[in-house]
Design a protein around this nucleic acid. Structure first.
Lengths: 195, 195
DNA sequence: TTTGATTTTGAGCGACTGTTCAAGTTAAAA
DNA sequence: TTTTAACTTGAACAGTCGCTCAAAATCAAA
């Protein structure tokens, strides 16, 4: 009995995610989405309930992708800090031009849904908190490995990392000579080791 | 002969600026604006040409306000770095709750107008460049006064400042115990003096 | 007071928005 | 092959968007 679904859910979410990341939630119309993911309104609403539902899935998927990207760099690096550094270089320098936006999708979400009661605002806060917790475990490992001093707690290192990383991405959102990026990343990691 | 304009142009722009800063360009409807600035469509379009025209004026006014705010703190401080510090503390801690957004309006604009040919994108880039140039003159003065070493150029200090400041504002956009803000600002300025 | 250029008003235009749903299509079960 | 539940389609809805413009209101000059 029944028919099978034609679309591949994961792939659809990933494509939608790119579009939402680039244009933001409000500026992405359902017609834009229809074309990008090749689905008609009825199917989209049957599968995701609403534009908000699809965005919600997209934002969650984004954080999963980010974490798995970091895990990949950690796996091919001797140290935790080295892995994070490779990740930062990859985001700011190497994948800058093929990325929908220089700015983290979570940061964009946090600034778009400023109205404090919206459910997408709650979601973006929740995902941000979980990402910080994930980073904290990484820095805890780095301290344990004696890569970093224990002058700061793992959480404080994670906070410092986020401030630096967000700041750099915001700065290199504006077009600049890319020669500036590498020295500023070097500076960031030199500072981390001196904290 | 003729009639006089009823509205005060500067005041109208300032109110519109607050609304645009909070909600973004796209999410702010012309009806929202009509209510906020108490003008009917015909008057708005006679005075500013379009929604884009009013936003453009609002963004320019925002940077003027920021600069004059910094100048104010500089005037009541012994040192350039002290003035900048007072400014940062004012933005992140003191005026956090009465500000339309924790995130700089220019940064929001830069991330909203990602399509590279739009005129508002060009404007936000131009204003960002001018603001960086302004900061650079301040740091040049700080170096001249021996407040800061000359290991870095004035431009490099300005870049560092912007990365830190943008990063901190992005971080404290998410709700957190405000006790975290002051130590992180202290850290920022401790780092600047050690560069 | 009359004149007439200027400003303000707000109903309304065409385009676009997120979403719905009846009709059509599909394929596993009978 | 027939049945039937699940899935897909796309026309269409009610609402909102940025914006226009004829008409009303305003006030300095004559």
């Amino acid at each position: 009995m029944a028919n099978k679904v034609k679309f591949e859910r994961e792939n659809v979410i990933r494509v939608a995610s790119q579009l939402f990341w680039e244009k933001g939630f409000i500026a992405t119309s359902t017609r834009d989405l229809q074309e990008a993911i090749n689905m008609r309104p009825g199917s989209i609403y049957a599968a995701f309930g609403s534009k908000e539902g699809l965005y919600s899935e997209s934002l969650k998927d984004y954080t999963v992708q980010m974490k798995s990207q970091i895990d990949g760099f950690l796996a091919s690096s001797d140290t935790v800090v080295g892995g994070l550094r490779a990740f930062v270089e990859n985001v700011i320098i190497k994948t800058k031009d093929c990325s929908p936006s220089a700015i983290c999708m979570l940061v964009k979400a946090n600034s778009e849904f400023a109205e404090k009661d919206a459910s997408l605002y709650e979601l973006s806060l929740d995902l941000s908190a979980k990402f910080e917790a994930y980073l904290t475990t990484l820095f805890a490992q780095a301290i344990k490995n004696n890569e970093l001093s224990s002058n700061l707690t793992a959480l404080e290192y994670a906070q410092f990392f986020q401030v630096q990383f967000t700041g750099l991405r915001g700065y290199f959102n504006r077009p600049r000579v890319e020669q500036l990026a590498q020295p500023m990343i070097n500076q960031m990691f030199a500072l981390i080791k001196k904290l």
